[in-house]
Simulated scan of single mutants.
Amino acid sequence: MLGSLLAVLLVATGAIAQMAGERVPELSGPPTEMGEVVAEPIPKWVVDDARKERAYPDQPPVIPHSIEGYQLSVNTNRCLSCHKRELTQESGAPMISVTHYMTREGQMLADVSPRRYFCTACHVPQADVRPLVGNTFRDMSEMGVGHAGSE
């Protein structure tokens, strides 16, 4: 009895594997020979230090300068050496938003909130490159929505 059950199980497993091989397409395709791929040139960073217009409300501002070589770790944040509230007078950099000094509950802190410490989680430098995907974003003003009080 056990032998016949094992035989049926073995035949059924083989049949399922054979059917799956016919229904599931190959993922890798035919083997190809390794060749050299031409590397694209490294893009040029936009470093004009000009503030960019934001596309939508509450969009984090982009970084208008190079951050190459900036250390951003648990112990060090070079961004704060210019953008922290106390240092903006001498650096001339815009101060980070007051929201970066708040907890999730809206309580003000004396220093930058740990959840806002890693700047590049939201803020990114800009490179002069072709977009990876098409963009169909349209501003509300382009869709017929006027500004408040413009009636």
Rank of each mutant, 00 (worst) to 15 (best):
E86R: 09
E36W: 07
V124H: 13
M140T: 12
P60M: 01
V145W: 09
V8S: 12
V46W: 01
N77T: 02
M102I: 05
C119F: 08
A55P: 01
P30F: 06
L9K: 08
L5E: 10
D139P: 00
L87A: 06
R85D: 12
R51K: 14
A93H: 05
V37F: 04
E40N: 09
G29V: 01
M143I: 07
Q126Y: 09
R51D: 11
A12E: 08
Q18L: 14
P125A: 07
V74F: 07
V8H: 10
F137W: 15
L109N: 05
I67H: 02
I63M: 01
S91P: 05
P61L: 00
A55I: 03
D58M: 09
C82Y: 03
V124M: 09
P31Y: 07
A148L: 08
S73Q: 02
I63H: 00
G134K: 12
D58R: 14
F137L: 06
E33R: 13
E53N: 07
M95E: 15
V133R: 11
H65E: 03
P43I: 00
T103L: 07
P57I: 03
T103C: 04
G35T: 11
M102T: 13
S150Q: 13
L72C: 08
G21E: 11
T103R: 13
V38G: 03
P41I: 00
R116K: 10
A110R: 13
V129T: 12
C122P: 03
E105C: 02
E142V: 01
V98A: 11
M19V: 15
T99K: 12
T88H: 05
A39T: 05
R104A: 14
T99C: 04
V38M: 08
R104L: 13
L9R: 12
A110V: 06
R54D: 06
P131I: 05
Y70G: 02
A20M: 07
V112D: 03
S141L: 08
E90Q: 12
D128M: 10
Y117V: 03
R54L: 06
A7C: 10
R130E: 15
F118Y: 14
E105S: 13
P57F: 01
H147L: 11
R51G: 05
R104G: 11
A7Q: 10
S81W: 03
C122K: 03
M1G: 10
S4G: 01
R85S: 10
M34Q: 10
E90F: 06
R138Q: 15
D49K: 14
P61K: 06
L5K: 08
Q71P: 00
L6D: 07
W45I: 11
D128I: 04
A121M: 10
Q126D: 06
Q18Y: 14
H147T: 09
N135L: 07
V8K: 07
L87D: 12
I96R: 08
T136H: 09
P60R: 02
Y101N: 02
